[in-house]
């Protein structure tokens, strides 16, 4: 059983939020990149949960190899963390960062799976916290001919069947499909583990296999992005908040109810 987990590095979304809210988020001269050096780089939290889902499958006694793969620049830290958590293999696909969009990433990952022994189960985070696109798992699954199950809170394997508990807006459901399959993991999976000290030490000895697009049989056409980010900006929020005054919580409550009635928001 080979489990492939796709992971990537993002800017810490909480730090981006703090800077954005304070009106101090810096966009670089290219008009599209956030340039603050002070914002930490982390593994995308949903991808961390995807690794956790793989580790729980292994903890459950399934004999499996866990391969964590990352495409694009600056992925060394993510892969080191994956190794420390217990990945059996780590792989980095490098290519010109200018040429990376979600279509290219999905093509690189597809080629990785096809060229490195396939996959019985592919686990991905439900989306990346930077672009929020969440399309790579669907592209990957469709191109590989695998069914795609989204937003999992639990994943279990039973022979060649994967059983997934997923959180939909109006139900919690358990679904099944036959492997191979792609499953995307949501935060409802729960808090992922930290690497152990032994894991960290072992990870120092693990080398990532570094692959170029050409190693995976991809040519220039495959690296042509279809959607290019032209610019990025912080949206303006119209602040017209009227702060209510009152000498007590009861006074504040009365003032609010009076306003809402005057506006006919409350009858």
């Amino acid at each position: 059983m080979r489990i492939v987990v796709c992971a990537k590095q993002v800017l810490d979304p909480d730090a981006v939020n703090s800077y954005a809210v304070a009106g101090r988020l810096e966009i670089g001269e290219d008009g599209r990149s956030i340039t603050q050096a002070a914002i930490p780089r982390l593994m995308n939290a949903y991808d961390e949960q995807a690794i956790e889902a793989a580790l729980r499958i292994r903890d459950g006694g399934i004999d499996c190899t866990i391969a964590v793969v990352s495409a694009g620049p600056d992925q060394a830290e993510v892969l080191k963390q994956a190794a420390a958590l217990g990945a059996d293999e780590i792989a980095q696909i490098t290519c010109d960062p200018a040429a990376i969009d979600h279509h290219v990433v999905a093509r690189l990952l597809r080629a990785y799976v096809e060229h490195t022994g396939g996959a019985d189960l592919i686990l991905c985070g439900r989306q990346a916290s930077d672009d929020d696109q969440g399309v790579v798992p669907a592209l990957l699954g469709e191109w590989l001919g695998m069914p795609v199950i989204t937003v999992a809170r639990a994943v279990a394997l039973d022979d060649n069947i994967v059983r997934v508990t997923r959180v939909t807006p109006d139900a919690e459901e358990v679904v099944e499909t036959t492997l191979p399959a792609v499953v995307t993991i949501s935060n409802e999976l729960g808090v992922p583990r930290y690497p152990s000290t032994a894991g960290r030490i072992a990870a120092r000895r693990m080398q990532a296999s570094v692959l170029l697009p050409a190693d995976l049989g991809l040519g220039d056409d495959d690296l042509e992005p279809a959607a290019v980010v032209l610019k990025q900006f912080v949206p303006a929020v119209q602040g017209n908040c009227e702060f209510l005054n009152g000498d007590s919580p009861a006074g504040l409550a009365a003032a609010l109810v009076a306003r809402l009635r005057a506006d006919q928001v409350l009858l």
Binding site: L11, P13, V16, N17, A20, V21, L25, R32, I34, S129, D130, D131, D132, Q133, A227, V228, V229, L230, K231, Q232, F233, V234, P235
Partner: peptide
Amino acid sequence: TSAYGGDTRAVYE
């Protein structure tokens, strides 16, 4: 598009 959970807007061409 909305990006970073709504913190930013990314414009794709």
